[in-house]
Nucleic acid binder design. Sequence first.
DNA 1: AACCCTATTGATCGAATGATCTATAAATCG
DNA 2: CGATTTATAGATCATTCGATCAATAGGGTT
Lengths: 209, 209
Amino acid sequence: MDQPVSDIVAAEPAERRRLPPEERRRQIVEGAVTFFADVGLDGKTRDLAKRLGITQSLLFNYFANKAEIIEAVYAHVYLDRLSEDWPRRLTDRSVPLRDRLLTFYTEYSQLIFEYEWMRIFMFSGLAGAELNRRYLHHMGTVILHPLLDEIRAAAPAPVDPQMEDIWNLHGGIVYIGIRRHIYQVPTPDDPSEAIAHAVDRFLGSFGVV
Amino acid sequence: MDQPVSDIVAAEPAERRRLPPEERRRQIVEGAVTFFADVGLDGKTRDLAKRLGITQSLLFNYFANKAEIIEAVYAHVYLDRLSEDWPRRLTDRSVPLRDRLLTFYTEYSQLIFEYEWMRIFMFSGLAGAELNRRYLHHMGTVILHPLLDEIRAAAPAPVDPQMEDIWNLHGGIVYIGIRRHIYQVPTPDDPSEAIAHAVDRFLGSFGVV
DNA sequence: AACCCTATTGATCGAATGATCTATAAATCG
DNA sequence: CGATTTATAGATCATTCGATCAATAGGGTT
C-alpha cells in the first residue's frame, strides 16, 4: 500500500519565483486538489511542495496548517458548484420530464465524473468528514425530492415511487464514475447513452413516456 | 482530517498473554480488519497494537512488515467469499429469473453491505490496489455476464440489454452500501424492498415479467 | 518444583513528518 | 540606482513512524 509517492509526485520542473501572493495561493490550491485526489488526504506536505516546485515551508506561509490546505481544497472543488438553476429546470413542466432528467444528468455527470471531484469526495467520505453528509442532504432536498414530486405528478395512479427509488436511479448513474475513478476499470468514454437508458428504464417502469 | 485516532482506537483492557501462535495471529488479523476499515490503510501499527492490547513489536513477530498485515486483511475479507454456486443458481432456468435475481442480490448485499467489506474495498480502490480490478473483472465474467445472457434469453426480441445496463442495475444496488458505510447517511435498515423494486423495474423495462 | 522453550515486552534506531524561524534575494518605489 | 519590502528558501525542532533486538516471563513438561 505504501506506494513510492515521491516518484509519481513530480510535475513541473521548478518554475519561477516570487509570484504575487494571490496567484501563488491559487496555484497551491489547484496543485493541492490534484495532489490530494491522487494520493489521498494523508498526502505529505513535502510531496505537495515538490510537485508544486516550491519549498515545503512556503506552504505554511499561505496556510496555518495542513488542515487549512484541505479546507481550501474542499472549497475549491465543491463549494457552489451545484448549478443554481437545476432545481428550477428540473421542475419546469413546460419541458417533457424525460428531457429534464436527461439534461440534468448529462450536466451533473460532467461535474461529478471529474477525477478530482470523485476521488476527493470518496476520500473525505471515508475520513468521516461532514462534507459528504451535508452534500448528500443538500442533493436530496434540493434536487432528488423535487424530482420525486415530478415523477409522481407524471406517473399514473397505482404506482407510487419513493425516495429510495430515486436514490437507486441516482446511484446507478454515479456508480459509473466510481468504477472509472475509484476502482479504475474501463467505462464508456461517453456515459450519456448509459445514462439515457437508465433514465428511460426508470421512467418507463413508472409508466411515464 | 487528522482525527485523534488514539481516542477511538482503544477497546479491550489489555487481556491475557501468551496465546498459541495460531490464535494470536488470527486475533491480530481480525482486529486489523476492523481497525483498517475504521481508520484506513494508513492506520498506524501502534494504534492497531493498542486496540489489540498487545505491544507494537509483537505485530512484527507475526508479520514481516505492515504490508503483510494488510495482505492478510485482504485475504480474510475477500478471498473466496463469492459463493461458488451463485453462477449456477443464477443460470438455473427452472427457477423464474426474477426469483434468481432477488435471491442473488439479497445474499450478495448481505455480504458487501458489511462495514468492513465496503470500507476496505473503497480504501484499497483509492490506493490503486489491483484487488479491485481483479474483483470487478471476476464479478463481470462470472456473475454479471451470465446474467446478461439470462436476461437476453428471457427478453422479447426488439430490446437488447448491454453489459452497461447490467452494471447500472448492479451499481444502483451497491450504492445503498456506499451511502451507508462510506458517506454515513441514513439508509433503509432492510434494503431488500429497495432491491426488489430495482430488480422489478429493471426486468419490467426489458419486458420480463 | 525446577527447567526449558518461546511468546511477549520494552527500549531503541533511523527516517519521515508537520511546523517554526531566520537568512536571502526578487521586485517595487523614491 | 539604491533602499525598502516581502516572497521564498534553507536549516532545524519535536514527534511520530515502521522496524529491530536483547531481555523477560508465561506455561507446559518432566
